[in-house]
Structures are given as structure tokens and as C-alpha cells.
Computed example of a mutant assay.
Amino acid sequence: MDYHEEQKKNDIKKLRELLFQLPEFCFEYFRGIEPTTAEKTRLGYAHDLRIFFSFLLEYIPSLSGKTIHDITLEDLDGVSAQQIEMFLDYLSYYEKPDEDGAVEEFQNGERGKARKISAVRSLYKYFYKKEKIKGNPAMLVSTPKIHDKNIIRLDVNEIARLLDEVESGDKLTKHQRVYHEHTRVRDLALISVLLGTGMRVSECVGLNLTDIDFENNGLRIVRKGGNESILYFGDEVEQALRDYLEQRKQILPLEGHEDALFLSLKKSRLTVRAVENLVKKYAQTVTQLKNISPHKLRSSYGTELYNETGDIYLVADVLGHKDVNTTRKHYAQIEDSRRRSAANVVKLRKEE
């Protein structure tokens, strides 16, 4: 089965399992939003709604003694906007027992709270529109203000040092160098692809051998939402890929992983987590002050592309942002710097 289809299937299975941990009316809700939402969005909503219903049972007196399965639409209709605001406050810090009975601590910042209130809003909106509840208190609750973070990225010199380290492995530990001997060529190709195209890590691990087009130096990827796109790469990425493919020919993959471009030492498709750990391992040898992830490599590419072209629409298109304002917000610092540099370009009085 195709990697992306496999991912969809797994998300659907996880959602079905979660649905049995939610009130019965949630079956109707998730069927209703299926045509307009992606699998991962629905799965995220299910996780967030489970937290919301657990909060209601714990803190709403009228629901005392009930279980999640006992919650009805009438109960949902009885929740006030103030109680939903209490839920947002609760998300700042709460505790839950894990499967072994040990207490786990959870914290949510403004982004985590915004995602969870979005799930609650979607639920209320659906049943209010269906006229199955009388009110929509979730719409009266403000979304937490999300403050823009400074973009953490590698500068040009750090990128060069990172690629040098992937090739040499000089700063790795003795234990890490043992594995580096077997993964160096693959790791260089993988990190070159991330840095040279700006693709998401999920798009990178989903690459198949048939997705490479050396005639046009393009990589076919599947974006979030399932749309296909072509990202183009330069000579350095081409060379790294060609070197890896020579090595890749000698590997006999596990059954079901024959098409995967990037393979683990176990000869199966690399996972997102594995790539995250791989990037972190090498990045720590280059900078201790920046917490570099695959997403930060994506930001590094976006920054360089914008610095070279000044075209925010091109950056948005290549990065796969549906709304250019998302891109503009992320790279606002660079735009501000460019505007400042323009201040001294225009001279009011020409020197003689």
C-alpha cells in the first residue's frame, strides 16, 4: 500500500478507537465533518474533545457521577461560555493518571489552547447549525492571543558547518560514529533535501524512489490535504541524492518498504521521529544555543529563498502555505529589515 494511504488508514483506525471514548453524539459529528476535514484534523479534534469532556465531568457539578458516555447533547447545551473559559484556564496545567496509575502533568501554551478551543467551537457549531442545541456558547469565548515567536533558523555559515559535520561526523560521540559509517551518505542526502527544498519532514519521509525526476531535478511530494506538488532542487541536492541512490541499490528493503526512498538501518521507511532525532544529533554539533528541528531547516530554506528573491508569494508557494499571510507573518522580521535598509537608499539631497 502507498505510504500516504497507509498513514490515512492508520489515522482512521486511531479515530475509530478514540470515538468509543467519547459521547455517542460524537459519531454523528465526526461523520458530518468528514467531507470538509483531513484525517489528521479529525484525529486531533478527537483528542482535544476527550480532554474537554473529562474537564466537564470533573468541574461541572450537574455532570457529577456521569461518565463520558453518559454525556448528552442536552448536557452540552447546558455548558456556559464562562465554563468554557474555565476549561481554557484548566489547560494551563492539569494532571491525569496514566495507564499504570502514575500521575502525568500536562501544560498548554497559547497555541495548545487555541487548537483545543477550535475543536470545541467546531463541535458546538455543528450541532447548533443542525438545530440540535439551542445555543453556541463557544462562539462567545475569545481565542487566546498567539504571540509571534522569533523564527529560529540556521544562518549560511551554520548550514555549511552542518553539512560538513554530516559528511565527516568528527564531532559525534564514539558510539554515534559507529552508526555514522553506515548512514553518512543517506543522512547527507536527507538533510540536503530538507535544506534544499524546504519540504516538511512528513513529506520527506513519504518520498518514494519513483518521486525523483533527475531530468528536471524535481521531487514529487504529497502536501497536507493530499494534493501533489513538485519541488525543484539544485546541483548539490542532486549530487547527494545520486550518491545515496547508488548505496540504496545495494539494500534489500523489508516487505512493504520497497518503494521508500529513505530507509532506516532496519531497512524500513524512516519515520518522522527518526528524522527529528537525526537532525537534532547533527545540529547539536553546530550550535548549542538553537534548538534545531526539521521544521527549523524548513525555516532556514524559506529565509534564504526570501533573501535571494524578495518574493513572498514564491516563498509561500514553495513552502505550501495556502495563505500568503501565513508566510508574511513568519518572515515579517526579514521584511522589516528590508524596509529599514531602504531608509538610506533614497537621498533627499544629492551630494555634489
Rank of each mutant, 00 (worst) to 15 (best):
G198S: 12
G198P: 00
G198A: 13
G198R: 07
M199I: 15
M199V: 12
M199D: 00
R200G: 01
R200P: 06
V201A: 00
V201C: 03
V201W: 10
S202Y: 12
S202K: 13
S202I: 15
S202H: 13
E203G: 01
E203Q: 06
E203N: 02
C204A: 13
C204M: 13
C204S: 07
C204V: 13
V205S: 01
V205H: 02
G206A: 09
G206T: 03
G206C: 08
G206H: 04
G206F: 04
G206I: 02
L207A: 04
L207I: 11
N208C: 09
N208D: 14
N208H: 03
L209M: 12
L209N: 08
T210S: 13
T210N: 10
T210Q: 12
D211Y: 02
D211F: 02
I212N: 02
I212T: 11
I212Y: 03
D213A: 11
D213K: 09
D213F: 10
F214A: 10
F214E: 05
F214K: 05
E215L: 13
E215V: 12
E215N: 11
E215I: 12
N216Q: 06
N216P: 00
N216F: 05
N216G: 08
N216L: 06
N216V: 11
N216A: 07
N217S: 15
N217W: 00
N217E: 14
N217V: 11
G218L: 11
G218I: 10
G218Y: 02
G218T: 15
G218V: 14
L219K: 04
L219M: 11
L219Y: 07
R220L: 14
R220H: 10
R223G: 14
R223D: 05
R223H: 08
R223Y: 06
K224Y: 06
K224R: 09
G225E: 00
G225K: 01
G225F: 02
G225N: 05
G226K: 08
G226E: 06
N227H: 14
N227R: 15
N227G: 13
E228K: 00
S229I: 06
S229G: 09
S229M: 08
I230E: 09
I230G: 07
I230W: 12
L231Y: 01
Y232I: 14
Y232G: 12
Y232A: 13
Y232E: 10
F233M: 04
F233I: 01
F233R: 01
F233A: 04
F233N: 02
G234L: 03
G234D: 10
G234K: 04
G234P: 00
D235I: 05
E236Q: 15
E236F: 14
E236A: 13
E236R: 15
